[in-house]
């Protein structure tokens, strides 16, 4: 899978642009972190790559196609408050949504959902409402839903914030295995990667000088092995 963006400027409709134009591509399996101060546009960049937000300028393609036209290829772990809090959907049914419109046979689907629930220690909560889970449990259910259908690229928006240390390590271990064994691109927005630098392949850093209106996005590869990915400002 190849994610390519050219002269990309992100921002919501009818709101100011957030960054200087930048270009780049991601194609190798690895964990890529997006870091920067609050309000700099990290989540907006993530959603623009996913095709959920229309960019102010520039283009994004995934395997040569617009991002919204790749069902089943991309997975997304939003922040927990994005899930409709009035909907008392069970954890089991919530995770099942990860298969999209074309799930495997019913037995196979249920077996894989049960395996995912067990992997993320949610088996005893399967029939509970999603909203009765704690913040950390919700994040685990969101991750289980995202990786259920073996996506080729995974985008996560602040997944570490609600997790305790043990679950953070489990999440990073799982993402590391997916990234390197299955050659999947994992893109994560978060504030605290200090303990997990060893897992990262590269970082996108949002920076803003005091008097500057827009952020610059700097690409920082961890080492030369990741240099197939690049960005320019």
């Amino acid at each position: 899978m190849t994610l390519v963006w050219n002269d990309l400027v992100v921002g919501y409709q009818n709101r100011p642009a957030l960054n200087r134009p930048f270009s780049g591509r991601l194609e190798d399996g690895g964990i890529y972190a997006i870091i920067g101060p609050n309000g700099s546009g990290k989540s907006t960049l993530l959603k623009t790559w996913l095709g959920l937000v229309v960019p102010h300028a520039g283009q994004v393609t995934i395997n040569g196609r617009l991002p919204g036209t790749n069902p089943g290829v991309l997975a997304y772990v939003p922040q927990t408050h994005k899930v409709n809090r009035y909907f008392q959907i069970t954890v089991h049914d919530f995770v099942m949504q990860g298969f999209g419109r074309h799930p495997p046979s019913k037995e196979e689907a249920v077996r894989r959902v049960n395996t995912a629930l067990a992997q993320w220690d949610l088996t005893s909560d399967a029939n509970k409402s999603f909203h009765l889970l704690s913040g950390g449990q919700k994040t685990r259910a969101l991750v289980a839903r995202a990786i259920l259908a073996n996506p080729k690229m995974i985008f996560l928006d602040e997944p570490l914030a609600n997790l305790d240390i043990c679950c953070q390590e489990q999440l990073m271990d799982t993402l590391h295995i997916l990234a390197h064994r299955n050659n999947i691109c994992v893109v994560m927005v978060d504030h605290h990667f200090e303990a997990y630098e060893k897992f990262l392949s590269a970082r996108f850093v949002f920076e803003r000088e005091h008097n500057e209106e827009f952020c610059s996005i700097r690409y920082e590869p961890k080492d030369d092995t990741c240099c197939k990915t690049h960005s320019s400002t």
Binding site: K47, L50, G51, L52, G68, P71, G72, L74, A75, Y76, P78, K82, V83, N84, F87, I89, F94, Q97, G98, G100, R101, F130, R145, A146, A149
Partner: peptide, 9 residues
């Protein structure tokens, strides 16, 4: 439950 995820998938 989650329109953005649903659209994406």
């Amino acid at each position: 439950s989650d329109a953005e995820f649903a659209r994406l998938i």
